[in-house]
């Protein structure tokens, strides 16, 4: 039981790093009033270009930068369309997903099946030897450790800095923000750009660290899950981390059950993360609406 729980929690942390990056990125964007349904595309861009850079240069830092830039730059297309051209956010996001899928499928084609050095797990000395907590938290790769820093940082940034306040003000009401001397468009551009960078890093974690491989469409819906988890977390980074852990934990839980010879059909077990997320949402249903940035209501809440 003890080992089982440890396995589930370790698996949750390990497998959901990529989703967490995208969730943080989407949180930042949505706090500024921009939904990016194209996180899937940004993640793919990061996964692919990170891998390609790694294959050519064998330089981790450079690959991470390439991945983050790829995610950030592609999300700028979205920013341009929805901020400057006032296009529909959902349609533009979905188009961005197709863009990411297409471009990475094309550029990445020759790199399928290629071998790279990749990023390996790096257990932290001493810390990883703490019973139970050690293996769960401190036996991962650098990119996972980075999320331990990034998540609280984003939280502090959003809620306890002037810049964070500016982002949220724009997300609540552009006009008011403008009237109080902010530059809403610039802030939204930046939020979307950094959000995309985070998603790109998430993608890179998947290709460079987690699987050491690249293949077309390898994010397999993680970007969409991230968007769902942002709503789930009520636009809060810390709750976002909790959400991804819950989601990842459900996946790890069902895999651990299967490996132990569960009699339940694996397809039914596979539903756990989705049903669990829904169940939690049902319990907290009502409060959600108030947490939503006002600026997003135009996108999400047609009927009120």
């Amino acid at each position: 039981m003890f080992l089982f729980l440890q396995g589930v929690l370790t698996g949750a942390v390990r497998s959901e790093t990529s989703v967490l990056y995208a969730t943080l990125g989407e949180t930042l964007g949505e706090r500024a009033g921009i939904t990016n349904l194209g996180m899937e595309g940004c993640m793919l861009m990061g996964a692919c270009l990170g891998f390609v850079t790694m294959a050519h240069t064998d330089n981790l830092a450079l690959s991470m930068m390439a991945a983050a830039l790829a995610g950030g730059l592609s999300s700028l297309i979205h920013a341009f369309l929805v901020v400057t051209r006032r296009a529909n956010q959902l349609a533009s996001g979905l188009a961005l997903m197709f863009f990411g899928l297409g471009v990475t499928g094309f550029i990445g084609r020759p790199y399928v099946g290629m071998k790279i050095r990749g990023l390996n797990e790096l257990p932290i000395p001493y810390l990883s030897e703490i019973p139970f907590v050690g293996p769960i938290l401190f036996t991962h790769d650098v990119l996972t450790y980075l999320t331990y820093l990034l998540t609280p940082l984003l939280w502090v940034f959003l809620f306890y800095t002037r810049w964070g306040l500016a982002v949220r003000a724009v997300g609540e009401n552009r006009t008011v923000a403008y009237a109080s001397g902010l530059r809403p468009s610039l802030i939204q551009y930046l939020a979307v750009f950094f959000g995309g960078m985070l998603a790109g890093l998430g993608g890179a974690h998947l290709s460079i660290a987690y699987t050491h491989m690249w293949v077309e469409g390898m994010t397999a819906g993680r970007g969409f899950i991230a968007v769902a988890l942002v709503i789930f977390s009520m636009w809060h980074p810390l709750r976002g981390m909790l959400g991804t852990l819950l989601f990842g934990g459900a996946i790890a839980f069902q895999l651990q059950l299967q490996a132990r010879g569960s009699r339940i059909s694996p397809y039914i077990l596979d539903m756990t993360p989705y049903l669990l997320t829904l169940a939690v949402l049902l319990l907290w249903g009502r409060t959600r609406k108030h947490a939503m940035p006002e600026g997003l209501k135009a996108v999400f809440e047609g009927v009120d």
């Binding site: 080992l3 698996g11 987690y210 699987t211 293949v215 397999a220 651990q256 299967q258 694996p266």
Partner: peptide, 23 residues
């Protein structure tokens, strides 16, 4: 045995493999 429910999902395959090693 762990079934991933798909022929091609590297992320999930890696997680399944990790779960097995944890076991």
């Amino acid at each position: 045995v762990v079934f991933t429910g798909g022929w091609y999902n590297p992320g999930k395959e890696a997680e399944a493999a990790n779960s097995l090693v944890d076991l």
